[in-house]
């Protein structure tokens, strides 16, 4: 999963997750910014290459 909400994400303990500083309601990226949206998706799916559980991975996306 990917999320902008660190607190709630920690609470539900997902096996793999990326975190961003994007806004509520725009989890994958800013509207119309296809490059950013693809980066967030790719970075999140890339976590599958590692056994879970993984520590949360912070992405520099806002």
């Amino acid at each position: 999963m990917t999320s902008w909400n660190v607190g709630k994400t920690v609470g539900v303990a997902p096996p793999r997750a990326t975190m961003t500083r994007l806004s509520r309601g725009a989890t994958i990226g800013n509207p119309g910014d296809n490059a950013q949206q693809r980066r967030v998706i790719a970075a999140t799916l890339a976590l599958l290459a590692h056994p879970a559980p993984l520590a949360l991975v912070m992405l520099d996306e806002k």
Partner: peptide, 20 residues
């Protein structure tokens, strides 16, 4: 408040071959 104590474990997945 909700705080789960256990994080699910899972094997690595080759995403290039995976059904997502």
């Amino acid at each position: 408040a909700l705080k789960l104590n256990t994080t699910p474990a899972g094997l690595a997945v080759d995403v290039t071959q995976a059904n997502v």
